[in-house]
């Protein structure tokens, strides 16, 4: 159990009458994991419980073998975990450098100056960490927040919407950084986000929350397999033709769009090839792999 990244059982959390989490149980091994779900699904609540910032009303949780709800263990855990909060904000009078240095000291880093330089370069905030945080843009704050989370080589980084304030270049830079840190230093990540595109190549497992319940979890590949790995998009003109020839075996997620599971892909391709040989390829047919965005849509809409 201590080897596992996170083990949670029956986590329940209420805010007044609102039940944010309802008996959520899961276990995660080391890797890069994504916490996804529509607004109000309980992602941030779950992440905050894992970080020890909230205490569940019921249930148990272990992160890196430690109990974040126990104050002493939470302090130990914070030496090994980095946190990226949603919409980061800092004391306005402090400079980015002073915050990074303070975090490095508190985490027991021996070479504070070197560590601050390292994380600032990794996240691209070297140029402005000498300025007060009150002068930062949202994107600059976000990068500083990520730098803070990476101080002291954490074993696990919990990220709540880590790229929400970044431009596309900044976003892909962060995703590349996550992937590189996992490969080179073995840093594990749990990322809660709505911005799913670009995550597919790097994530190991997905936890899908909806209305406070964990409705789907597993490796991305396995989930794609069970939900229909391939998506067939057809134009209106090709739709009738396709429906006559093949549609009985396809799950329609919306008009003109079909989900195809892997076992059927060979049969479908054979059928399309046979049509092509006869010069009867339906125009406007596109076959591609299910993306994380599409998986999200399929699960949310129950398609």
């Amino acid at each position: 159990m201590a080897d596992r990244l996170v083990v949670a059982s029956n986590l329940t959390k209420s805010f007044g009458r609102t039940r944010a989490l309802k008996s959520v149980s899961f276990a995660l091994d080391r890797g890069i994991h994504s916490l996804i779900g529509p607004n109000g699904a309980g992602k941030t609540t779950l992440l905050r419980i894992l970080a020890g910032l909230l205490r569940p009303n019921r249930g148990e949780v272990r992160v890196l073998g430690l109990d974040p709800t126990h104050e002493g263990e939470r302090v130990s855990l914070m030496r090994r975990v980095g946190i990226v909060h949603e919409n980061p904000s800092f004391p306005l009078w402090a400079t980015g450098r002073s915050l990074l240095e303070r975090a490095a000291k508190m985490k027991g880093v021996s070479d504070v100056v070197g560590e601050v330089k390292r994380v600032a370069e990794l996240t691209g905030c070297s140029e402005y960490i000498g300025r007060k945080t009150g002068e930062y843009s949202a994107g600059m704050k976000q990068r500083l927040e990520i730098a803070l989370a990476l101080i002291g080589d954490p074993e696990l980084v919990l990220m709540d919407e880590p790229t929400s304030n970044l431009d596309p270049i900044g976003r892909s830079r962060v995703l590349r950084l996550i992937s590189r840190l996992h490969r080179s230093s073995g840093v594990n990540f749990i990322i809660s986000t709505h911005a799913l595109s670009g995550l597919e190549p790097i994530i190991t497992e997905i936890l899908f929350l909806r209305e406070g319940r964990l409705i789907l979890s597993g490796r991305f590949d396995e989930l794609k397999e069970s939900l229909g790995r391939w998506v067939l998009l057809v134009s209106e003109s090709a739709r009738q033709e396709l429906e006559v020839g093949f549609s009985a075996r396809l799950a329609v997620s919306r008009p003109g769009r079909y989900g195809v599971i892997s076992s059927e892909i060979v049969e479908l391709l054979s059928w399309l090839c046979a049509r092509a040989e006869r010069g009867e390829v339906p125009a406007g047919v596109e076959l591609r792999e299910l993306s994380l965005d599409e998986l999200f849509e399929v699960v949310v809409k129950g398609g």
Binding site: A51, G52, L53, E71, G72, R74, V75, S76, M78, R79, G82, I83, H85, P88, S89, F90, P91, L92, L99, R102, A103, M106, K107, T133, L148, A149
Partner: peptide, 18 residues
């Protein structure tokens, strides 16, 4: 002012609530 940035930042460090 404290609640906004200060607490989040501080609680992310190895520092007990007490």
């Amino acid at each position: 002012e404290c609640e906004g940035g200060y607490l989040r930042y501080s609680l992310s460090l190895p520092l007990s609530r007490g």
